Simulated scan of single mutants.
Amino acid sequence: MIPWTLIDTAPLPGGGTLRLKQRGTEFSIMLGTNELMNSRLFGSEEALARLACERLAGRAQPRILIGGLGMGFTLRAALAVAPADAAITVCELVPQVVDWARGPMAEVFAGSLDDPRVRLHVGDVAPLIAQSRAAFDAILLDVDNGPEGLTVESNDRLYAPGGLGRTKAALVPGGVLAVWASAPDERFTRRLRTAGFQVEEQAVRASTKGRGARHMIWLAAA
């Protein structure tokens, strides 16, 4: 078996280090012993974009915010279904992740960052949401393994009642918040409903082949 090779590391705000590893054509991003992303398992990341964009069908000039660049699978899936007049903002907290997208993982990203519909914002997605009012038709969040701050503790504010209220204000009426997680969380479902969202839960496979672990996607209509 081909061994894993450490390609690069990236410090996280508040502590911790991301590690980019490669084995043949496969990539993995690790935080400690947790694998956050793998280039072979991206079915649920694609589903995050597909399910959210389905709810935007027929809207002219949809504005979409993606929190978390990752390995670009959510972005690529959104580009595949979004109309030509869409505007997609991708927010990535860690600058090195953007460097990886344009460097060692360029083939994985397949030029998606150069699509004219895409604007890249390097920084924290939470302030961007907080300063926005009725700015987005959809907000897609994949910045942690679930609705809590695993990668960066300050991400907790995104999933707290105040953060959900700010996200709702950043959406147009009828807009959708889509959140990816590795597992269900009934408390988060209740918080979404308390914040005034109409909530749908979707369990999706991690693999595009319909096998493997099931991940959770919340679709919350404003």
Rank of each mutant, 00 (worst) to 15 (best):
I88W: 05
W100L: 08
A77I: 03
E45T: 05
S112T: 05
P62S: 05
D85H: 10
A160K: 10
D142G: 07
P127K: 04
S39H: 06
M30S: 12
Q96I: 05
S154V: 10
A126I: 12
R63K: 15
F136L: 12
A160N: 09
L93W: 07
L150W: 11
R50G: 09
M105R: 00
P147I: 08
L75R: 02
A60F: 10
V97F: 09
D99R: 01
D142N: 07
P95D: 09
R63M: 11
L171R: 09
T151K: 05
Y159K: 06
W100H: 03
A87W: 14
A134Y: 14
F136Y: 14
A82C: 08
C91E: 08
A80E: 09
A78P: 06
R119Y: 15
A80Y: 01
G163V: 10
M30Q: 11
I139M: 10
E45H: 12
P116S: 08
G162P: 09
G67I: 04
V90N: 10
G163W: 15
R40W: 12
L31R: 11
S44P: 02
A60K: 15
V152A: 07
T151L: 06
V118R: 05
D114A: 13
T33Y: 12
D156I: 03
T89H: 09
R133I: 11
R166T: 14
D156S: 10
L56W: 09
L93S: 04
A110E: 10
A110H: 01
L56Y: 02
I64C: 04
R50S: 14
L75Q: 01
R119F: 15
A84C: 11
M105V: 04
R76T: 02
G111S: 05
A87K: 13
L171V: 12
D144H: 03
E35F: 03
A126T: 13
C91M: 14
D85L: 11
I139L: 10
A60D: 15
L48Q: 04
F109P: 06
T33K: 13
I88M: 02
V108S: 07
N145I: 12
S154W: 09
A87H: 15
A106C: 08
L140I: 07
R133A: 15
T151H: 06
R166M: 13
A138V: 02
A47N: 04
G149P: 08
D156V: 02
S154T: 13
T89S: 12
F109T: 11
V108C: 13
A135H: 13
S112P: 00
R63H: 12
R117K: 01
L158D: 03
A169C: 10
L141R: 04
A87I: 11
R166Q: 15
G72D: 03
R119W: 15
E35G: 05
A77Y: 00
